[in-house]
Design a protein around this nucleic acid. Structure first.
Lengths: 346, 346
DNA sequence: ATGAAAAATGTAAGCGCTTACATTTTTGTT
DNA sequence: AACAAAAATGTAAGCGCTTACATTTTTCAT
């Protein structure tokens, strides 16, 4: 009895098993999978039949090792637990999927060291390219990426002065124009609730945007009251309460994102304050929460899904062409809803 | 001049380079990395110095191929673009990280075929284990997983009748008890807005829960008006409008999740209906949106973060011990807020 | 029919790591 | 100091795939 096309049972079939069953060489099987138009139709059929009957699927680790590419893109985001990243990343991965790439996601919990660790991990796992959020990180990280020739793309931020490939928006300019709107309505006592700005350039740029708005209006930017707290509704609420107990109570509270703003809104309601009559509140991002809040939030709209798509395209282009694609600045716009009005008459 | 500890420049250092620089064998370097207490402290130091000076980090593909494990867990979720998955997955990955595992995420967009494809892809990429959402999938998929000996865990659902390892909650029972509350308040004309139930067992179980509640109350479950639509605020709003133009207008609308419910709430406001005086609305999940909605939503609270944590623990236990861990049912509870009240007097 | 070019297929050498087994070094007795 | 046992290290064979190069088969103009 001919044993040549017998295959071990109870184990995961490998490419060599397919080759044996199909009666061809391993190279041919590999070609069927990777360069299908280099094989004859008849051969292809035999191989495909063998693959189906064995339930074979290739081992990507072996493939990655042999071919030195993984068709995997890594993304390191601060947290999935924020609609803006979740949404953008969802779009990013849908777009990648179209090009046959898989996404590897890790999150840094807004911690710089953890982000660096994750970058090394994803690189070691063979990510062909990386999506990173914001510009801020140690120079050694950028050097590492350069040395490894791993294309990296910065998203959620765009700064023409920075050399990195980026797809994002200008946090500074967007917040500045929102600040201008606030100032134009007559507010003079403004406060900010922001995420810690130490290693978060988006948050920092937004605060700087407000300060520059103040300066342009002839006001002292150092007079700006700022509370730093992590993104969460609860923290937003607490920060707002603190602000309201200040001697110089602000008439407008500009928040670093919608989550904080909704928290502020909630605290305001609990304190019996009318928004926007007593205090104005603004957000940033325009997540769903913003439009269904008890008082719909005036905020900066950011095209998160489109950002994810563009980012994927830029990365794939870089990967395919071998040369860095073009950075892309996305527009933001202010959504005027119900939380911004002139300050109360004294 | 001694050339033995020279190393090629301009390339990615590999383990052999580390060995050469440190003056030890490749096996020793490998052990420093994987079995650190099998090497002498002095050796360890030499090796670590070499690793630092070269900027070495191991190639996971090679490691996976040689060791036949990847320390990677895959998760296939319907979409990241829904707070419940984003939040649960975030917790899942934080927990995995503690055990040195990386998470590979893919999303199926609620499409059964795509999910199957993703399962094969993640398996091929060497996921040691898989997190799946809900029970519903082709038997061949479960067979495939079994043959490959890939532990899989079902989350977001728990059904004692199903054999799979699961960490989740009883969608049917949770929704039934919510229905009971609705019925007890006197509602007799109830409608559901749900996600398509064809390949979504969670959605299906929730609807069945309502039907059983109806039956228990002596009502005809087939009389239940059901609108199936994809999860989104807009779709929820539209479905609610449709329901309100029906001849037999329902007095309570039970939604498959909070996103639909918030949409319904929005539509109600636009139509000038008072919630809960004119119509009651209920949700499911208890995402942030639910508590900050214009009328805080009465909904079923699901412990998403804890589910993610438990799921990670169960999977790691399975991986470490080699035998299937224990399923775990998480409790849900009803959050009574502002959208449920008795029907209006006629 | 014939032969050269083109197309299809085969052979076999790695890719960078882990690990069984072999060898050397250290430790702790006596 | 000598020896066995234990600890540390080294040697080398793969893991499952891709791909350069070699060989065979097919195609097509003559």
């Amino acid at each position: 009895m001919d044993e040549t096309n017998k295959v071990p049972v109870g184990t995961v079939p490998k490419l060599a098993d397919v080759a044996r069953v199909a009666g061809v060489s391993t190279a041919t099987v590999s070609r069927c999978l990777n360069l299908p138009d280099q094989v004859k139709e008849k051969t292809m059929r035999k191989v495909m039949d063998a693959i189906d009957s064995l339930g074979y699927s290739p081992n990507y680790s072996a493939r990655a090792l042999a071919a030195n590419r993984t068709n995997t893109v890594g993304a390191i985001i601060p947290t999935m637990d924020n609609a803006i990243f979740a949404r953008g990343i969802q779009a990013f991965q849908e777009e990648l999927h179209k090009s046959g790439c898989t996404l590897l996601v890790a999150s840094s919990s807004y911690e710089e060291d953890l982000e660096e660790e994750q970058i090394r991990t994803l690189t070691a796992r063979g990510a062909d390219a990386l999506l990173l959020i914001g510009y801020h990180r140690q120079p050694r990280v950028y050097e590492f990426l350069k040395k490894r020739r791993i294309p990296a793309l910065v998203a959620w931020a765009y700064n023409p002065d920075q050399p990195q490939l980026a797809v994002g928006f200008n946090n500074h300019a967007a917040m500045k124009s929102l600040a201008r709107e606030v100032l134009e309505r007559g507010h003079r006592k403004i406060a900010c609730i922001t995420a810690p700005t130490g290693s978060n350039d988006r948050a920092r740029d937004r605060v700087l945007g407000v300060k520059e708005g103040l300066r342009d209006a002839g006001l002292d930017p150092d007079g700006l009251t700022i509370i730093e707290t992590n993104y969460s509704i609860e923290n937003g609420a607490q920060a707002f309460q603190e602000l309201m107990t200040l001697d110089e109570r602000p008439t407008a509270v500009m928040c670093g994102n919608d989550v904080l703003a909704v928290g502020a809104l909630k605290a305001a309601t609990e304190m019996g304050l009318k928004i926007p009559d007593d205090v104005s509140i603004t957000g940033f991002d325009d997540i769903e929460l913003a439009s269904v809040a008890p008082v719909p939030l005036t905020t900066v709209h950011v095209p998160h899904r489109r950002m994810g798509q563009f980012a994927a395209q830029a990365l794939i282009e870089t990967l395919d062409s071998g040369q860095t694609g073009e950075s892309h600045e996305l527009p933001t716009n202010i959504c005027f809803r119900g939380t911004l009005a002139p300050p109360p008459e004294k």
